[in-house]
Structures are given as structure tokens and as C-alpha cells.
């Protein structure tokens, strides 16, 4: 038994070491969640519940103000982009997972490859691309679509979020047992009808993928910087809304945090707390939904 004692000691020490290191890795997460919550709740209590409806104070004033426009903006841009994202994702994943011919299968294969790459691309590049695309369209047709607008922001979010939702839906379709799929197709129904039945079969997964899509949408910052751009006013609901800049919670956190005013920085914490609550809720929902599978 030469050296067994030393080997066991080493094993014990190394496992203690990785335990310590892991705890060190988790401390910042704990700290972040607690500090955002404490600071957020503290500021909210100063102007509750109006802080969720008011607009930001003018520079130099000592008022608390609120984050109303950004909450509304996030809701608008999300409800605008998610249905489109979902439609594209469902159609594309049905196409690639229920492919019947060799041609359809190869299209599906390249779609999958492309989306996997798209997921890993920095979102700021997608923002830049949308900005550049709108510039080119404007120059080409000699028109003037505003590049800092809700339209541009929605477009960027659709490009960013679709790959996530697509791969979720596709995974779910692929996980349908072959006997179920064979049973559905053996009913002699049309492909559209079969697709409908299969989608009903993966309903919980479909809900989970919507949750993940919404989560990705409300968390995005970088791509919105030069598309949605941000605005400190309540969006006016008229025909021109698509062509005006719009604020979101993420843009508010970013801009207020880097501003020189104390009370704006405070609002940044409030927006961060609000966003944290929203994203944690979605996280819990998606966990529960995927556990059901």
C-alpha cells in the first residue's frame, strides 16, 4: 500500500479546494442578487407605487421620478417581436424536423448550422447589421426609414431571439418518439394537419420556448443601442410609433448607470431590480415547464 495515505490526503485536499473555489464563484452571484434587491427596494419605497409610472426627473432636479416609459417600451417591443419570432421559429423547425425529401433535409441541416452560429455571434454585430441594412435600403430607394426606431429595434430582436426559440422548438419536435410520429402520419392526414397535431403534442415545450424567447428579448441591451436607441417619454400610440425611438428597461439601466446624476443612477437600480424580477420569474416558469416533460 505504498503512498495510499498521501494519495488519499491529496484527494481530500483537492476536493476541499474545488469546493472552496466553487463557493468563491457563487459569492458574487449572491452579492449581485442581494445588492440589486436591497438597493432597488430601497429606492422604490421612496416613491411607491408611482415610481413604476412616472417619467425620469429632469437633469439637476432632486426628485425620484420613475421608470414608467421603459416598462411600457419593453412590453411594446416584446409583444411586437415575439409573435413574429415564434411564427418563424415554428415554421422553420417544422420544415427541418419533418422534412420528407432530401432537398428539404439539407435545407434543414444548413438552417440548423446557421442558427447555431447566429446564437454565438455578439448581438452588437446584429445591431450594427440592422443599422447598416436600413442605411443601404434608404440609400438604394432614396427613402428615409429612421434607423433609431422601434421598427429597427424589433427587427434586431427578431434576428437575435429567433435562433434560440427555433432550436428549442426543434429539439422538442425531434424528441417526439418515432412511434407517435408514425401514428400521426399513418392517420392519412395532410402535412399541415399532421404538423398541427405534433405541435399540440409538444405544447409544454412550446410554452417553455416562448418563455425563453421573452426572457432573451427583455434582457437584450447591446443590439438596441443603435436601433431602438432609447427614449425617456411614454411612447405615443399612433401610426408613426414604429418610426420613433423607444426606451426599454435595459437601455434605461445602461444609460442611467453611466449618467452623472445621483437620482438617475438610483433609477438604474430600480430598473435593474424590475428586470431581475421579470427574468427570474421567466426562469422559474421555464424550469417548471421543462420539468413537466
Amino acid at each position: 500500500m505504498r503512498g495510499l495515505g498521501i494519495r488519499k490526503l491529496k484527494s481530500y485536499l483537492m476536493i476541499s479546494l474545488i469546493t472552496t473555489v466553487s463557493v468563491l464563484a457563487l459569492i458574487p452571484i449572491f452579492h449581485l442578487i442581494t445588492s440589486v434587491t436591497l438597493k432597488g427596494v430601497e429606492v422604490i419605497s421612496r416613491n411607491f407605487p408611482n415610481i413604476f409610472f412616472d417619467v425620469r426627473p429632469i437633469p439637476g432636479s432632486k426628485e425620484v421620478g420613475g421608470i414608467g416609459p421603459y416598462i411600457v417600451g419593453t412590453l411594446i417591443i416584446t409583444s411586437l417581436s415575439i409573435p413574429i419570432t415564434l411564427t418563424i421559429s415554428v415554421l422553420a423547425s417544422l420544415y427541418s424536423s419533418e422534412a420528407l425529401s432530401r432537398f428539404e433535409r439539407s435545407i434543414g441541416k444548413y438552417t440548423r448550422l446557421f442558427t447555431h452560429m447566429l446564437i454565438e455571434f455578439p448581438t452588437i454585430i446584429i445591431g450594427l447589421t440592422v443599422y447598416g441594412l436600413l442605411t443601404s435600403i434608404n440609400n438604394l430607394f432614396n427613402i428615409n426609414i429612421p434607423r433609431f426606431s422601434l421598427l429597427a429595434g424589433t427587427l434586431a430582436l427578431i434576428i437575435i431571439v429567433t435562433p434560440y426559440v427555433y432550436s428549442q422548438v426543434e429539439d422538442a419536435l425531434k424528441s417526439i418518439p418515432s412511434h407517435v410520429r408514425e401514428a400521426v402520419y399513418s392517420l392519412g392526414v395532410t402535412r399541415v394537419k399532421a404538423a398541427y397535431i405534433l405541435l399540440r403534442y409538444i405544447k409544454p415545450a412550446l410554452y417553455a420556448s416562448i418563455t425563453i424567447g421573452v426572457f432573451r428579448t427583455i434582457s437584450e441591451t447591446a443590439a438596441l443601442l443603435f436601433t431602438a436607441f432609447g427614449s425617456d417619454h411614454y411612447p405615443i400610440l399612433d401610426s408613426q410609433i414604429l418610426f420613433r425611438p423607444i426606451g426599454t428597461l435595459t437601455l434605461a439601466i445602461y444609460n442611467f448607470a453611466l449618467s452623472p446624476y445621483e437620482n438617475w443612477i438610483d433609477l438604474s437600480w430600480v430598473a435593474a431590480f424590475t428586470l431581475l424580477v421579470m427574468s427570474t420569474t421567466l426562469f422559474v416558469i421555464s424550469k417548471v415547464l421543462s420539468r413537466g416533460r
Binding site: 466553487s22 441591451t221 427570474t280
Partner: peptide, 23 residues
């Protein structure tokens, strides 16, 4: 521990930015 690590991955990056800047 697993839920905590997954939750950490689900926190929007701009919130990490705010915490990083002031804390």
C-alpha cells in the same frame, strides 16, 4: 447549487454591468 448556477446564467448582462460598475 445547480439552480443557483443556472439562475446566474439567466441574469441579463446589463445588470451585471450595473453591479460591476458600482460594487
Amino acid at each position: 447549487a445547480e439552480v443557483l448556477v443556472d439562475l446566474a446564467a439567466a441574469i441579463p448582462s446589463v445588470i451585471y454591468g450595473l453591479w460591476g460598475l458600482y460594487i
